[in-house]
Simulated assay, not measured.
Amino acid sequence: MINEKFARFGTSHQTSWDGRAAANFILGGAGSALLAITVLASWPNTPNWPLLALALSLIGAGLASVWTEIGRPWRAFNVLFHPQTSWMTREAFVAGLIALLVVATIVTGMNLAAGAAALAGLLFLYCQGRILRAAKGIPAWREFSIVRLIISTGLVEGLALLMLADLATGTAYANMPAALLVLVVLRFGAWWIYRSRMLASDAPRSTRATLGLVHRALLGGTVLPALAVALAIAVPAIAAPGTAVAALTALAAGWWFKYLLITRAAQVQGYALGNKLRRGHPLANRA
């Protein structure tokens, strides 16, 4: 491993974003994916409006969390002025589009509006991944594989929330546990790629320790849902509790991962001078 003294990672953690920023990725990612998956599961019928309202509320709560983090909250409107360069601006615009489309779907019942809202939800999730990718000063976020990891994590969360909502209303779909199993495996595969690339780099010990915590959480968030789904299929009498356990463990693992990613795995890059510095005249040690 490269000596941390010359690493592309710094040793100090970013101080701009805290748990409130993490809440935007947690709630907004889950809400946008819930919107998309709800529409897909209901197609060609119009989804139930409470689920649409829940998805929109989660997105709004996430954005409100970021707003409370700003020292001068009214400066938040400045984010609207840079759509050509800022993924935060694009996220805000997509959130507004989602609100309009969700209201249109609830009022008119048009499945075309619902389909457009689902696409906007997926776009919102993509914007969240690109926000992290654009943070060039934080190597743990700028890793290119972070985008598919954020997207796959959000899809797991959205489906898990839909399963829990359906269980609460007694309208569970038989194929949802199998779909959840596929998504958690895809999420763990995306995590494996991301983690392998991070461990192959010059990550400091603090980042490696956090990656270890996340790995155990996502491993549990894959194995436990798989066991719960298998048990629910094998023993129909406990299908509902097994499905609930699968959804809750998958959801909790994703939310814990996002919290750790924002609050504990974001060392700021310092100056990178390289490891070939020599004493004396700059030409003295030329080969």
Rank of each mutant, 00 (worst) to 15 (best):
S201F: 02
E4D: 12
S86N: 13
W255F: 05
A239K: 09
T249I: 05
I151T: 08
I151Y: 01
G96K: 01
L248G: 05
K276H: 13
I131C: 07
A252W: 09
L261F: 14
S196N: 09
I98W: 08
I150M: 12
V235S: 06
W17V: 13
G62V: 10
L159V: 00
V182M: 12
R279T: 14
L224Q: 00
S16E: 15
P236F: 04
S12G: 07
V245N: 02
G280V: 14
A41P: 01
A232P: 00
A21R: 02
F124C: 01
A226N: 00
L80D: 09
L161Q: 03
Q14H: 07
S16D: 11
N175S: 00
Y173R: 09
G10D: 03
T11G: 06
R216H: 07
Y194M: 03
V185P: 04
L167T: 11
T11D: 04
N45D: 14
L149F: 06
Y194A: 02
L186E: 09
G31K: 09
W49E: 07
A209P: 02
F6W: 13
D166L: 12
D202N: 14
L119F: 11
F144S: 06
W87Q: 02
T105I: 11
A114T: 08
S152I: 05
N24H: 09
T210I: 15
G109K: 02
Q128A: 05
V107K: 01
M176C: 00
G220Q: 11
V182E: 01
A21K: 04
G121R: 06
L123W: 14
V229T: 11
M176T: 10
A76I: 03
G212S: 03
F25L: 12
A266S: 14
D202H: 11
V147N: 01
L186W: 04
T210N: 06
P73K: 07
F81Q: 05
P177F: 10
A217T: 03
S145L: 00
Q128V: 05
P236A: 00
P50V: 10
L251Y: 08
A284I: 09
V214N: 01
S42D: 12
S12V: 15
S201N: 10
F124D: 03
R72I: 10
V156N: 00
V156I: 12
G19E: 11
Q84N: 13
